[in-house]
């Protein structure tokens, strides 16, 4: 398995994480990836770099300081008004120029809509390999190569992919799969600022407007601390009210399995699982969900999982923390009531 890398490629050193900023906000997946990148960089004894692209150097400077606290040693910054809104062409150019100049051996991006658009373009421009939607990263001790693992066939199987003879080795990683690192406020690092070798006139695509999602409507599922989720076992759409009721008392977000989003019992953006969202709440309550592998991969990293299912042999009991064998249509309102009365008592006492 030992690999003699072409000396031209062996010159590629260091791990980079793309820090994704949209509208001045850094996507949390970027910090998750810095946490993971730090581990890999320590194994390889190389620097961890954060690539930050955007319109204003102030915002980028702030993001760079945060990146250092999450583990980056160096921040590669390109600030240019052209980069204010995400557009494929200038972002691809900025990223590929940086890679060609500083030659990292690994480049990681979040598997978001922005990250996937950019990663696919950068990998093709650099003519290198890109592994999509990974859930696990490791280093091959034999050849210091990246071992990128991703679910396939809806999570039933996993496969590990390597990019042997090309650099950088690229991968996109799902939000919420890697743990959020703790910030170390006193950590700092170096800033390397580069210019974008482009003029606005060179760029054909123009952003006319940006219509932000209604924050109220939008499910903040991926980053919710508490989630109550329902499955087909609830029997009918009306029973989902029991899920919403419990969620309201808990201050939780509502999620569901694929059959219920497909049936329209719940909006599509509330689907948890392989083809939906990956979540890591402190508490996940699953009612009437069988625990199929495609659902499991999206929620098994939750701290505490409480499963309610009337089948004692349901697969969800193989990995839930607590199991209740019973009819969800009865247990859910009982839980809501019990909670409500305890919270009321505590509130009076507190």
């Amino acid at each position: 398995k030992r690999l003699e890398l072409d000396p031209r490629l062996a010159a590629y050193k260091g791990i980079w994480v793309f820090v994704e900023m949209e509208r001045g906000q850094v996507h949390q997946v970027s910090w998750e990836l810095l946490g993971e990148g730090r581990k890999l960089a320590d194994i390889l004894h190389v620097e961890l770099g954060a690539v930050i692209l955007g319109g204003s150097s102030d915002a980028l400077g702030g993001a760079a300081r945060s990146a250092f606290t999450y583990g980056a040693d160096v921040a590669y910054i390109v600030a240019d008004p052209i980069l204010a809104d995400y557009r494929n062409e200038p972002y691809t150019k900025a990223m590929t120029d940086l890679v060609n100049r500083y030659q990292p051996e690994i480049l990681l991006l979040g598997a978001t809509t922005l990250g996937r658009d950019l990663a696919g373009s950068v990998a093709t421009t650099l003519l290198t390999g890109l592994t999509a939607d990974c859930t696990e990263l490791a280093i091959d001790p034999d050849n210091r190569g990246l071992l990128a693992t991703r679910p396939t066939f809806g999570g039933s199987l996993l496969c590990t992919i390597q990019t042997l003879n090309y650099r950088p080795q690229m991968a996109t990683i799902r939000p919420r799969v890697m743990a959020m690192p703790d910030a170390v406020p006193e950590r700092s690092g170096r800033i390397v600022a580069e210019n974008l070798q482009m003029r606005e006139d060179d760029i054909i695509a123009k952003v006319l407007t940006f219509i932000p999602d209604d924050a109220q409507e939008q499910a903040q599922l991926a980053y919710a601390d508490i989630i109550v989720a329902g499955g087909r076992g609830l029997g009918k759409a009306e029973n989902f009210r029991l899920i919403w009721d419990l969620a309201a008392v808990l201050g939780a977000e509502v999620g569901g399995s694929r059959p219920v989003t497909h049936a329209g019992w719940l909006p599509a953006d509330r689907q948890v699982g392989q083809s939906g969202k990956t979540v890591r709440p402190k508490l996940y309550i699953a009612a009437g969900i069988s625990g199929a592998i495609q659902h499991r991969v999206g929620m098994e990293a939750s701290d505490v999982i409480i499963a309610i299912n009337n089948d004692p042999n349901a697969p969800i009991f193989d990995f839930a923390t607590y199991g209740i064998v019973g009819d969800a249509v009865q247990i859910l309102p009982a839980l809501t009531d019990a909670l409500r009365s305890r919270l009321a008592v505590n509130r009076r006492a507190g």
Binding site: T128, P151, T152, G155, L158, C159, Q162, T163, F319, G323
Partner: peptide, 17 residues
């Protein structure tokens, strides 16, 4: 450039609920 080096099933969690 990419090579699939391994295909395997997810490991089951050891403890039941």
């Amino acid at each position: 450039p990419t090579v699939v080096s391994k295909i395997f099933t997810p490991r089951p969690r050891a403890v039941r609920a």
